[in-house]
Amino acid sequence: MKAPAIRFYQTGSFAVGNRLLDPEQRSVQAGEQRTNSITCGHRACQGCGEALGARYALDAAMRATNGQMIAANATGCLEVFSTPYPETSWQIPWIHSLFGNAPAVSTGIAAALRAKGREDVRVVGQGGDGGTVDIGMACLSGMFERNDDVLYICYDNEAYMNTGVQRSGATPPAARTATTQAVGPEPGNVFGQGKSAPLIAMAHEIPYVATATVAELRDLEAKVQTAMEIRGARYLHVLVPCPLGWGSASKDTIRIARLAKESGIFPVFEARDGEVTDVSEIRRQVPVEDYLRPQKRFAHLFKPEPRTEVIARIQAGAERNIRRFGLLPDPKEGS
């Protein structure tokens, strides 16, 4: 299914407006036939972006595969909050093995299905940013490189949340975590470190790489749908704010995710075979300050006095993203 061509006035995205769409283009979550892959009763924090993202992504994948799907999970919040028995939240066949091997377990499932001639059953691997960009990177890269028929979804909350908010390779500069504390002359995480897993995925020239946020859940669903229409290794990187780790209000999860995109901090795009093919343009650019301010992990940038040069460096990073991915509409084209 193609992502709908209609862009909604309110958000410039696919976030609202089911009633205006053809039935098959409506949000999976709006339909009674949704799977509730992760059903109620799990123990995520209020406003958890990861729980929200996983629910949308998996239900969309279930619709795309007619319910013929198996999921493999890395250790992390998603696994821990969903499984304490007998209240497992999973209504799909689901396995958790280890922290760093979810892509390889997914490969094994896909290989078994191929050997059994059950290629109608598809595989989704998933994990947090730590499980994906750090400890799972070797397995992930191997899965990409072999072009195994797996969609791997990273729920990026920019730190090791399940162990108490420690820095990962996806933690942004200046962010306070338990291992990059807001103390000393340069509080928070250092500049010039970290990595972009989507760009690493693209370097493998796999058929499909995309990023998304929980601010635009319709876009997330559409990307999952697209991914499931493709065979081979696919990667989806979803920004999922974490109220606990980011020090943000539970009610602000979606707003903060939107600000990440609208400031240029988090580029939302699609790539095929290593080339960017589509970007979600910024609708109304906001300064990074708007994104940083509501999060306590960046509080030291504003108190006791503003660290304007640090904020400027973060702004420069956002501008670089905007240039690199072409996130602002070309002014010549009008609006």
């Binding site: 091997n101 094994g108 070797a138």
Partner: peptide, 15 residues
């Protein structure tokens, strides 16, 4: 590590 992990995924899928 991946070898054993692939075996885990495959075995859990009944292979």
């Amino acid at each position: 590590f991946a070898a054993m992990s692939v075996a885990i995924g495959a075995s859990a899928t009944g292979a």
